[in-house]
Each structure stands twice: as C-alpha cells, then as structure tokens.
C-alpha cells in the first residue's frame, strides 16, 4: 500500500481510505518517507559509537603506558609493521619527520598525521587486520603510546588515556588545509 498522510493517520475510517485511494499516489506529507526507522536504543548507540573526534570525544575509560605498548606491539603488530614500526610488509609507522616538503616525502603517523586521536580510533577499529576490534581499550591506549613514543612524540614514561591522548600535539598538526568548501 502506498502511504500518504491520510492513510497513516487512519486506524479510523474506511471513508478516509477510500478518499486516499482516489488521490494521487504522489507523497503529500511533510515527512515524505514511510517513516519506518525505529528509535535507536541508548545501548546500541553506545556500542556502535566508535569514532573518536580530535577533541577526544568518544574516548573510552582505560589507559596504557609505553612500556605496556612494547609488549602489545611485539605480539600484535610487529609481524606486519616491522620491528619498531619500520614497516614491511605493511606501512611504516615511524619516521619521515621534516621530509614533507622535500622531493622524497615520507608520510607516517609521526611525520604526517595531524591528530593522535586518529591513531587510537583507527587501531581500535581496524588493527590488526587479521583480527580487527579484538584489542582491549587498555591495549589500544598502550600501543598508541608506544607508536607515539617511537616517533619521539611522547616520553618513555607516558601514559595514554582519555585525558592525555587529546593533549598530544602532533608534529604536522598544522600541515593540512581544509578544502571542503573550496
């Protein structure tokens, strides 16, 4: 059945349904769809809201240190990203600082990425590629701390959590020009 406003309103009247059937089937209503979306529950929104904004909104509880990150990295990342993030077979996670304007730019988390929150967001959702979304929040904080540390961005005793991670200033923080309205 086509929906138009009179049909939707009418548990009531055959008269109305009849009137509706004689009308054009083109939508007249201010809500032109059949309005079949159901209300999302607070739990399902919470479970699926995995994006982390640069300001830190969305970061979960938990924390991890560079030291803890050493172990996470060795166990879950090194096979693809190389020892100490040097890359091969997958992307290098370290190096390239100061190369962006040269003839041979090297873009890594350390040299290119504008926000540290992106590292947490991405590793948690997609890494390791063999088992995405399998790390605990503490493990993601720890390996994030480690990757930032091998890039010389945070100290060896750094601990990453919802408060400290958004404070990290990435070397290329001002390297991006917003073209969305150009």
């Amino acid at each position: 059945m086509f929906t138009c406003k009179c049909c939707a309103v009418s548990a009531a009247a055959l008269v109305l349904l009849g009137a509706c059937a004689n009308q054009s089937t083109v939508q007249q209503s201010s809500v032109p769809g059949p309005a079949l979306g159901r209300a999302a529950t607070a739990e399902e929104i919470k479970a699926w809201s995995i994006s982390i904004a640069p300001g830190g909104a969305g970061l979960p509880a938990g924390s991890g240190s560079v030291q803890q990150g050493v172990a996470v990295y060795a166990a879950k990342c090194a096979a693809c990203h190389g020892e100490k993030g040097n890359g091969k077979p997958a992307d290098a996670l370290v190096g390239g600082l100061g190369t962006l304007a040269t003839a041979e730019p090297v873009r890594t988390v350390g040299s290119y990425w504008p926000y540290a929150t992106t590292l947490f967001d991405y590793v948690r959702r997609a890494m390791p590629t063999s088992a995405p979304m399998s790390l605990t929040n503490d493990e993601v904080y720890a390996v994030t701390a480690y990757v930032l540390n091998i890039n010389g961005i945070v100290a060896g005793d750094a601990i990453m959590n919802a408060q400290s991670l958004p404070q990290v200033k990435m070397p290329n923080r001002d390297g991006f020009v917003d073209y969305s309205r150009k």
Partner: peptide, 28 residues
C-alpha cells in the same frame, strides 16, 4: 557532527600532499 572526525582515511590517506609540504584535506 559539528565538524569532521579526521579519520585515518581522510588524514593519512586520501589527502593530497602539495609541493610546499602542506596537504589538501577534504578535497571531495
């Protein structure tokens, strides 16, 4: 959202590095 989320695939990737070392972002 109010602003962009700056995901990996709109910062690290799919951004365009220019000669001066700056990158064009959100060039849709």
């Amino acid at each position: 959202t109010e602003g962009p989320t700056h995901t990996k695939d709109e910062t690290s990737k799919y951004s365009m590095l220019m000669r001066d070392g700056k990158a064009r972002q959100f060039m849709f």
